[in-house]
């Protein structure tokens, strides 16, 4: 297998795509998708969509989904002194913001500006055991009020950008691995399907605005009207202080979702394929809805039978999200094998 996850993720994570402003990330993903789906395009909502060429008219349609957006910040006020006040765009972890380097995509992305999140120095007293509220933090773009207002508009996005970096043991760290990892896995699956025969007509979407409430995925699913769907997202890898029953283990393979909101037979089939093929995988049991695009897709039109496969990821929604390349490879292998097995009845 020659799919280069490092290189693919470098391209995908370098592009900015805060929820609702996914243009650059979508363009990068669309270009990569077009190698497999000649009809790849970005729809009106910002979802990247495409279908694999298929001559079998009576095959059922299966929609593969991963989300293209990432969490970030949105500018909602500019002070007289030129500091930007922001809100979270998606579930930002305020504990990591103080004194972070940020990039502001000013004037709708035309002006790419460096900035620093303010932090309150210790001499000001205050309670250092308390995380700073988003209310108390501003972006310092090093400009006075006039220059700031010329370079930034309300509604512009800002991002903490950490370049993709390799850690020990073939692990990758960076921003937006939630869910560019999922996008990369699906591209790897498509790559494998060039040499393997699937039992489905395959539609693909890299959907917009997952982080603000799984908004793009439902629209994409509506347009495709699939018989089945498989969403790929990231989920919690165990770190100190987390509950083991809520987490997978980094490096132990894909986390196969089992939940009342997911199609039981598809989940079982994924477990079966993993066991039969000897692909490392783990099970993630959720007591209700999954909090992923699987929820939106399964509820589309008269309902879509949907499975969820998650890539274990440490430090979710921080600029130092961390994944294992082995997990990406195993997740792609599992999904490709699943797609080559007969559909569930």
């Amino acid at each position: 297998m020659s799919f280069d996850f490092r290189q693919t993720l470098e391209i995908l994570t370098a592009a900015n795509g805060v929820a609702g402003e996914e243009t650059n990330a979508a363009a990068a993903a669309c270009k990569l998708l077009s190698a497999y789906a000649p009809d790849a395009r970005v729809d009106d909502f910002g979802n990247v969509v495409g279908t694999l060429p298929c001559e079998e008219a009576d095959f059922p349609t299966l929609l593969l989904d991963a989300h293209i957006d990432e969490i970030g910040m949105i500018v909602n006020y500019i002070t007289e002194d030129g500091f930007l006040k922001v809100s979270g765009c998606g579930g930002v972890d305020i504990r990591v913001l103080a004194a972070q380097r940020v990039t502001v995509y000013g004037n709708g992305g035309k002006n790419v500006l460096s900035g620093v999140m303010t932090s309150t120095p210790p001499h000001l007293g205050g309670d250092s055991t308390k995380a700073l509220e988003l209310d108390e933090i501003f972006i310092d773009i090093g400009m006075d009020g006039k220059a700031a207002k010329e370079n930034v508009r309300l509604g512009d996005r800002a991002l903490i950008e950490t370049p993709l970096t390799t850690l020990a043991g073939e692990k990758l760290t960076g921003k937006a691995l939630d869910d560019r990892s999922g996008v990369a896995v699906l591209l790897a699956v498509l790559d494998q399907l060039q040499e393997r025969k699937t039992c489905y007509k395959i539609a693909v979407q890299f959907s917009a605005q997952e982080e603000t409430g799984e908004r793009g995925a439902g629209l994409g699913a509506y347009a495709v009207s699939p018989d089945y769907a498989l969403a790929v997202d990231v989920s919690f890898a165990l770190t100190a202080g987390e509950k083991p029953e809520k987490c997978g283990i980094l490096g132990k393979g894909a986390m196969i979702g089992v939940s009342p909101a997911l199609d039981r037979k598809m989940s079982d089939k994924l477990r079966e394929v993993a066991a039969r093929e000897g692909i490392p995988a783990q099970v993630e049991v959720m007591g209700g809805a999954t909090g992923t695009n699987a929820d939106a897709i399964s509820g589309s039109k008269t309902g879509v039978r949907t499975a969820l496969v998650s890539i274990p990821l440490k430090y979710m929604h921080t600029p130092v999200e961390t994944i294992s390349v082995a997990d990406l490879e195993n997740t792609a292998e599992l999904i490709a094998r699943f797609l080559c097995a007969a559909p569930v009845s």
Binding site: V96, A98, P122, S128, A240, T322
Partner: peptide, 30 residues
């Protein structure tokens, strides 16, 4: 004097090398 609040979610390196590590946190979701 380093305020712990400026460490969370950061990359650090072994001084004068390219060896990078990250200071992560429990996921905000949990």
């Amino acid at each position: 004097g380093v305020d712990a609040r400026v460490l969370a979610g950061r990359r650090v390196r072994i001084a004068n090398t390219q060896t990078v590590g990250v200071i992560g946190l429990r996921a905000v979701h949990n």
